[in-house]
Design a protein around this nucleic acid. Structure first.
Length: 291
DNA sequence: AAAACCAACAACCGCATGCTA
DNA sequence: CTAGCATGCGGTTGTTGGTTT
């Protein structure tokens, strides 16, 4: 009996050692695509064996979901997508897969990587803990308005028509073939505390299931979001002290050399203990890194 | 030209959760 | 009720390609 058990363990160990790890080859990709197209997703462990892949089921699942699935959107995140990520991260924290469900074609892994490589880089740059209230507020005050401006720039330059949809995936989103889920996430966004207060309460707000909205905010909604005083008063409590409203950010052409902006940056920075030197120079936000 | 460094992305790992027998 | 399995999630690590020294 014991011998039999040892045999089984030895067999499993050998099987485990034969499993391939590391980067996927084209041949493996083809095997996986072919199998999933014929038999569908799921039962990943048996799928791996039946498809003739010397990989774990987990590995196959990950490869499919993050790379091979047909509707995966590749390339840089648009400012609109970045803004959505910031909004949703404010609301839900590091709930990457939940955030990813609202960005069609984007994976949790991709969003997580974006956050680690871009956003946390800025935090390191400023020598602030990326999870600190200070950094979160800095994001809301400086980064997000700039993203919004970028969104507006790209939409105004690209859309002589009413549509702000620029990619194939965007177009799929409004196609009858790809019906929009509802409700729209950005109409759901309730006034949000900047410190992720509701992080642990994420199941109680907005989406009751995975089926909730997967539409990106369109520009008018996004602007509305930022001009919504309830939203802004809650997240930027003392913003009015500086006599600058979000719409002024945009009118002033945030990101351009501008004395008003520099002055404002100093004031806000001082209030929040950010270095004025940092704020006064481009090193404050490396906007070139952001898109 | 080559070594060192760094950023971005892909993949892995451990744990949690859900489902089912 | 519970054990076992499948799946999902988030954190972490590994790899690669580009840039700097």
């Amino acid at each position: 009996m014991r011998a039999a058990k040892n045999m089984t363990n030895a067999f499993k160990e050998e099987e485990f050692e034969q499993l391939k790890r590391g980067p996927w080859t084209l041949e493996e990709d083809n095997l996986l695509i072919h199998y999933v197209n014929r038999h569908g997703e799921g039962r990943w462990n048996s799928l791996a064996k039946l498809a003739g892949l010397k990989r774990t089921g987990k590995s196959c699942r990950l490869r499919w979901l993050n790379y091979l699935k047909p509707d995966i959107k590749r390339g840089n995140l648009t400012p609109q997508e970045q803004l959505a990520i910031h909004e949703l991260h404010l609301k839900w924290g590091n709930r990457w897969s939940k955030i990813a469900r609202h960005l069609p074609g984007r994976t949790d892994n991709e969003i997580k990587n974006y956050w680690r490589t871009r956003v946390q880089k800025q935090a390191r740059h400023l020598k602030i803990d990326s999870s600190s209230k200070r950094f979160i507020e800095a994001l809301q005050r400086f980064w997000m308005p700039r993203l919004l401006e970028k969104v507006e720039q790209t939409s105004s330059s690209s859309s002589s028509s009413t549509s702000t949809l620029t990619t194939e995936t965007d177009q799929k989103r409004i196609s009858p073939k790809y019906p929009q889920a509802e409700p729209d996430i950005f109409t759901e966004l309730t006034p949000t505390e900047p410190n992720n207060k509701d992080y642990n309460n994420s199941t109680s707000n907005t989406c009751a299931s995975d089926s909730c909205g997967n539409k990106l905010p369109q520009l008018p909604e996004m602007s509305q979001l930022y001009e919504d005083t309830a939203y802004y008063n809650s997240s930027l409590q003392n913003f009015d002290n500086y006599n600058v409203h979000i719409s002024e950010f945009n009118m002033m052409g945030f990101g351009q050399p501008d004395d008003h902006i520099s002055t404002m940056n100093f004031q806000v920075a001082d209030t929040y203990g950010l270095s004025s030197d940092d704020m006064a120079t481009d090193t404050y936000w490396n906007m070139e890194d952001l898109w």
